[in-house]
Design a protein around this nucleic acid. Structure first.
Lengths: 206, 206
DNA sequence: GTCTATATATGGATAGAC
DNA sequence: GTCTATCCATATATAGAC
């Protein structure tokens, strides 16, 4: 029933994803994508008209991968801290599977905001979720359950606890921790627990 | 006494820093650097032999800017939490002055580790400091003063609290928070206090 | 749909006058 | 030390055969 052969288009897309994530827009070479996909360079232009168009598609996909099912979690009926823990786990898992995602997205946004601004509908759920987060946080702070921070700062901190390790991974690997390669699996496995513990201590009132 | 005119070399260096930090190695154009410095393209090759050599110099400087006086702090006689607070303040201040530093360094390390690995002596103090940090943390945990985390995770968390906002700034600015520009000064001013509070709650045993 | 061959542009680098 | 002019390699993109 299913097609055993992936379509050429999807093979190219996958190769493009890999190369763009590793090299960025400026560093990516159409030839490299073609080689990786096992097709000719001209094929890339047949399926995607230009490097720019191709990149937009890839970037949009990367963004939607980066913003996972947070809205679903946020709409459940739970204490905020439990939602945050679920958020941490799902997000870390996502990034273990695809460690370059966050760095890639932030970076390309910084380099060329215009190229990227078009494909931003993916983020609407995130904005809505953010409002829900602020509302619930405000409630639970007033109820004396959570420590009172500036909500926007807190949001940044949570994201940072999750993303930062993956963004700084090249640094760990190439220099700070030369034997990091062997340790990284272990480190990444324990990351969600450590973040949750850290978050809980920082947030809950004892 | 001082020379009113900066040397051409230092003007070029400054322009190169600006362009490399904004565009990255792959996106940077020698022509753009020359224009910004107000000199001819050929001058860049006169002072720095090639784009690669130029980049190495700039990167080394960026790295040494990013790793400030942490060793001095770490060698003082203070409870760890006080050292961390001092570390937060100095580091945030540094990044407010030069917000692209962290993203630039991590990014280039990820893209091309080899190009960058040569100029890494700047980081030796950081490795030493890291050991001191681990030792003192271990002591104070055993003394029942601090919460027990995995030291390496904790280190990552602290760095993340400081750096992440600046790395993700393009994201805030272009999308998540459209009016971020007017709010950012305020946000950045309060950042050290919020981080310190967060850290203290997460770390100290009450 | 897929390939080869080629057009066109651009960017890093150099030669050489002043 | 600084400029102009130019070389040469490389990258995107297209034309056109199969």
């Amino acid at each position: 029933m299913e097609k055993d052969k992936l379509s050429t288009e999807s093979i190219i897309k996958q190769a493009a994803m890999e190369v763009f994530l590793k090299d960025g827009f400026d560093g990516a070479r159409m030839q490299k994508i073609a080689d990786l996909a096992g097709v000719n360079k001209a094929m890339l232009h047949y399926y995607f008209s230009s490097k720019d168009v191709m990149f937009e598609k890839i970037f949009a996909e990367a963004m939607s991968d980066l913003v996972p099912h947070i809205e679903k979690i946020m709409n459940m009926d739970m204490p905020l801290i439990e939602k945050l823990k679920a958020f941490v786990r799902i997000h870390v898992k996502q990034q273990i599977e695809n460690p370059k995602l966050a760095a890639f997205c932030f970076n390309e946004m910084g380099k060329n905001p215009e190229r990227v601004l078009s494909q931003m509908e993916a983020l609407e759920p995130m904005q809505r979720t953010l409002k829900l987060f602020f509302a619930q946080y405000d409630n639970e702070v007033k109820a004396g359950k959570l420590v009172d921070y500036s909500p926007m700062h807190l949001f940044t901190f949570i994201q940072g606890l999750i993303d930062y390790y993956f963004i700084s991974k090249p640094f760990f690997e190439s220099y700070l921790c030369p034997n990091h390669a062997e340790l990284s699996t272990d480190f990444e496995e324990n990351l969600p627990d450590q973040i949750c513990k850290f978050l809980e201590n920082a947030l809950t009132i004892k």
